Amino acid sequence: MSVNKIALAGNPNTGKSTLFNTLTGLKQHTGNWPGKTVVHAEGSFEHNGEQYVLVDLPGTYSLFSNSADEEVARDYIIFDQPDATIVVLDATSLERNLNLALQVLEMTNKVIICINLIDEAEKKGIRIDDKKLARELGVPVVKISARNKKGIDQLLDTLNQLVHGQIVTTPYRMTYSKEIEEAILKVESKIKGYFDGKYPSRWIALRLLDGDEELILKLQNHKNNRQGEEITNGVPVSVKS
Results as ranks from 00 to 15, higher is better:
151 G>F: 02
92 T>E: 10
88 V>N: 11
111 V>F: 11
148 N>H: 13
99 N>G: 09
75 D>T: 03
84 A>S: 02
77 I>C: 00
115 I>R: 04
84 A>D: 01
143 K>A: 15
74 R>E: 11
135 R>G: 05
81 Q>M: 12
116 N>Q: 09
100 L>H: 00
147 R>D: 10
125 G>Q: 04
89 L>E: 11
126 I>Y: 04
152 I>Q: 10
132 K>E: 09
92 T>M: 09
104 V>T: 01
128 I>S: 08
87 V>K: 00
81 Q>L: 10
84 A>Y: 03
135 R>W: 07
112 I>Q: 05
117 L>S: 10
101 A>P: 02
95 E>R: 14
149 K>C: 07
87 V>N: 00
72 V>H: 02
86 I>G: 12
121 A>I: 07
78 I>P: 04
84 A>P: 08
119 D>S: 13
148 N>E: 11
150 K>T: 14
132 K>F: 04
121 A>N: 06
118 I>A: 15
109 N>D: 15
150 K>H: 12
112 I>Y: 07
95 E>S: 15
102 L>H: 02
92 T>N: 08
74 R>A: 14
115 I>K: 06
73 A>G: 05
138 G>H: 00
102 L>N: 06
133 L>Q: 04
145 S>M: 06
151 G>C: 02
141 V>I: 13
90 D>R: 04
117 L>G: 04
81 Q>I: 11
68 A>M: 05
101 A>V: 04
99 N>M: 08
119 D>K: 11
83 D>K: 09
78 I>W: 08
142 V>A: 12
78 I>D: 05
99 N>C: 04
145 S>D: 14
108 T>I: 13
92 T>C: 13
149 K>G: 03
149 K>S: 10
140 P>Y: 06
114 C>A: 13
121 A>E: 06
95 E>Q: 13
75 D>R: 12
68 A>K: 12
93 S>C: 04
133 L>V: 03
91 A>P: 03
120 E>S: 13
138 G>R: 00
85 T>F: 01
127 R>N: 07
141 V>Q: 12
141 V>G: 11
74 R>T: 09
139 V>Q: 00
72 V>G: 03
146 A>S: 13
109 N>F: 01
151 G>I: 02
84 A>L: 02
76 Y>N: 12
100 L>A: 02
150 K>Q: 15
124 K>D: 11
70 E>N: 12
122 E>A: 12
115 I>A: 08
125 G>A: 02
85 T>I: 12
123 K>Y: 07
151 G>A: 09
141 V>R: 08
123 K>G: 01
90 D>M: 01
141 V>E: 09
115 I>E: 06
146 A>E: 09
102 L>Q: 05
130 D>T: 15
130 D>C: 14
85 T>W: 00
132 K>N: 08
91 A>D: 03
83 D>I: 04
83 D>T: 03
103 Q>Y: 06
137 L>M: 13
144 I>K: 07
82 P>W: 10
152 I>K: 08
103 Q>F: 03
79 F>H: 06
103 Q>G: 04
101 A>E: 02
